[in-house]
């Protein structure tokens, strides 16, 4: 903003170069300042506060706040609720990851060579990415309803018994994961399609002349190795997204039945904003952050290495 005033032509070249340096410095600082201030306020300061909180037993509205050191973290290690929610989160990721990546890849490979129908399928599969997950989760809840939902209606019609998808502890995580896959497949498909279209057509033709007879040969010789970097990227983004699962749990199960679908973010949400155990929630948040950073570091590491040919 302050740079707008300093655009006067200087007569002497030497002075002019110095002035240009100065203008650049001033303009640079001026332009960067608002963003820096906001980053400070919304990221850096909160992070510092979070770190401090995690060493205290602070509760919202509480008067006596004590410094606990690492007690919160010690508590977290043995906390059965945290253990359960971490385990649930990993089970969820373990189902969503292969599902969303594998199906995304499958759909992309099948769709890649289609000409007329490609747009149609692309729109269909991408639809869940743009739609409001909460609204669709409500609809899923209804679809999976034991008595009223069409899925159980179908099962009944085929002579199977009803399945209580959302109230049977053994089924609830796989059900939520299926919805997670439903939401992510289109996104991954588009990433894979972009990766596929970057593979030169020539290579497939050369492979065909060299004797790659079947689709499996083509896939193993060309598609899979050349899609490697894309695949790594998709795997990591999918892991992070799946690790952050919250919406479906909050709307459909609220962690139930009996905590069998309580995931990490939901546990943090309950501790922090329902029970107002700010200190403990801060410690849990840092644990959450550690996992996300682990994925992110993995990502930068892999993306650095991705130009391997």
């Amino acid at each position: 903003m302050m740079a707008s005033a300093v655009a006067i032509a200087a007569p002497v070249p030497v002075v002019r170069r110095d002035r240009q340096r100065l203008i650049e410095k001033l303009a640079g600082c001026g332009f960067a300042f608002p963003a820096f201030l906001l980053l400070l306020l919304t990221n850096l300061v909160p992070l510092a506060v979070l770190l401090y909180l995690s060493f205290t037993n602070y509760e919202l509205g509480a008067l006596d706040t004590r410094f606990l050191g690492l007690d919160n973290f010690r508590k977290a290690v043995t906390d059965p609720v945290l253990r359960r929610s971490l385990a649930n989160t990993f089970v969820y990721v373990a189902i969503v990851l292969p599902g969303a990546v594998g199906l995304g890849l499958l759909i992309a490979v099948l769709l890649h060579r289609r000409k007329r129908t490609r747009t149609f399928y692309e729109v269909v599969y991408f639809l869940p990415v743009t739609s409001t997950l909460i609204a669709m989760a409500t609809v899923w809840q209804f679809i999976l309803h034991p008595n009223l939902g069409p899925v159980n209606g179908m099962l009944r019609a085929m002579g199977f018994g009803e399945i209580a998808f959302l109230s049977e502890p053994a089924y609830v995580l796989p059900t939520l994961a299926a919805i997670g896959i439903w939401q992510l497949v289109g996104f991954n498909m588009v990433l894979f399609l972009a990766g596929l279209s970057a593979i030169p057509r020539d290579l497939y033709e050369a492979a065909e002349i060299d004797g790659c007879r079947s689709g499996i040969d083509r896939f193993l010789t060309i598609t899979w190795p050349l899609l490697g970097p894309t695949t790594m990227f998709v795997i990591i983004t999918t892991s992070i997204t799946a690790f952050k699962v919250f919406d479906t749990v909050a709307v459909m199960t609220r962690g139930g039945p009996m905590g069998s679908s309580e995931v990490l973010l939901y546990a943090i949400y309950l501790e922090g904003y329902q029970y107002f155990h700010m200190g403990y929630a801060a410690a849990l948040t840092l644990i959450f952050l550690a996992f996300v950073l682990l994925f992110s570091i993995l990502q930068t590491f892999v993306l650095e290495r991705r130009v391997h040919y």
Binding site: D202, A206, T221, H308
Partner: peptide, 15 residues
């Protein structure tokens, strides 16, 4: 039983 040499050579970049 024909071999082809492509304009872009079409070498497999990962091999």
């Amino acid at each position: 039983q024909v071999a082809m040499v492509f304009q872009s050579y079409a070498l497999y970049p990962h091999m």
